[in-house]
Amino acid sequence: MNGSIKWINGSATLSPIKFIAKIDNRLYDLNHFDRDDFNEEVLELDNLELALNLSVSLYTPISFLELSNIAKIVDDNNLDYKKVDIFALRDIRTDKNFNTILNINNFPESIRKYLTLKTLPLKSIELITTFSKSLQDFLNGFFISNISISYQKAKIFIDNIAIQKEALEGVKYIDGFEFADRKTSTHIEIDNALIAINSKIFPMSISTDDNFESGKLKISFYVDKVNSYDKFIDILNSNDKDIRTLIEFLKGHDLGL
């Protein structure tokens, strides 16, 4: 084999036939990536973009790290990424997005590893590319301890780094790290007041659907076989004073009630 397009991360899943592309008298392994113990099928192709398309089509799913490997092959060989189908399929249609993907290969090890396990939104990956080396190391530390964390939680963590980057510059990640709460003391007080009243009136609950934007407080309960209507009336009556106090407290904080 005198050309290489090994983009797959780790060992390739082996199929009975080893496909080889022949382009301008150079041979490229498309799926077994340099293992020699299978029957070979040589396909004559016009260009490397076609070879990549064929190779990628033999595997699914493809992680962001593998996508970055493909981007590197495209970049190293001066190919047109718009002719490599996987990029359009993953909605990578602009130079900016392509460069974001290409950049993944430069991320620290645990970030790259996480990207083989979970699919982060492209915007989160783009944010990581804007981080300094120190901030990427901080995120890497987080993934070392939390490699299985959901992508939603990872996205929030990355957003928080972006928002608090000035304070985090040069900081080393320590297990159990938590971001400073951005809520005002009043907001925290209001949240706590709701938690306190809800612990008293369970299974009823008092909440806000929209952070009080519409100036409404929701008091909710379900009447069913276990919880009769009378039960809720009793709860309301026995907590009437506390509920009124809560409403006055919320009014005092200009929430529009």
Binding site: T184, H187, N211, F212, E213, S214, H253
Partner: peptide, 24 residues
């Protein structure tokens, strides 16, 4: 990014605003 380092919530129109009591 420090513009966003404050108590913002998602409003019903989809925009993020400061928490109401702070905003008022």
């Amino acid at each position: 990014t420090d513009l966003l380092n404050s108590d913002m919530i998602k409003s019903p129109d989809g925009k993020y605003r400061y928490y109401k009591s702070l905003r008022v």
